[in-house]
Design a binder for these strands. Structure first.
Length: 170
DNA sequence: CCACGGTGGTAGA
DNA sequence: TCTACCACCGTGG
């Protein structure tokens, strides 16, 4: 069963690394996009959005800034992960338990949700993660100190782990 | 069904 | 070390 989690607002987050975009449903943050190009020029005008969402967006913005700086974020907005399948949501919830500066592996994560043989499927779920950074899919690496892949581009995974001081790679 | 992954483990070179 | 191969499992066509 998969849903679509309709977004009612899509707001920009300007950072040193480019412009992220955050989408919100009525239940919270439902999507976070990596910057496409480093310089897509001006921001597409912020329309009027409900106060609740403005509050969430502030939290999201701070969280993204903090994580890019390798710092922990104290508060995060509510996350709407209902767009995923049951399995995917289990994986995503499991990822949220990985602390800053820590890493886990696809196998560990699979075992953590009681499906030790679903390692490869976990990889798929990571790739389907709608909210990278806040749901730290970049902290999931392969076995034997190998980096593994990353949908948003491996350079992001490297950058994030580097900022978080995870010198686990060779 | 079938094919495809952000895997993991084994076997050889 | 690196390559080749294969078992696994959830997802989408």
């Amino acid at each position: 069963m998969k849903r679509q989690a309709q977004s009612i607002a899509r707001l920009p987050i300007e950072t040193k690394e480019g412009i992220f975009f955050a989408s919100y449903s009525q239940d919270g943050l439902c999507r976070l996009e990596f910057p496409k190009s480093t310089k897509p020029s001006n921001t597409p005008e912020t329309k009027q959005v409900p106060g609740t969402i403005q509050g969430w967006h502030e939290l999201t913005t701070k969280a993204v800034m903090a994580l890019l700086a390798g710092a922990a974020c104290s508060r995060v907005p509510p996350l709407d992960l209902t767009s995923g399948t049951e399995f995917q949501q289990q994986v995503w919830r499991g990822m949220q338990k990985i602390d800053l500066g820590q890493t886990s592996s696809y196998a560990e994560l699979a075992a953590a949700i009681g499906k030790p043989k679903a390692t490869r499927a976990v990889g798929g779920a990571c790739g389907a993660n709608p909210i990278p950074l806040l749901v730290p899919c970049h902290r999931v690496v392969a076995s034997h100190h190998r980096l593994g892949g990353f949908s948003g581009g491996l350079h992001w995974k490297r950058l994030l782990l580097d900022r978080e001081q995870c010198n686990v790679f060779a």
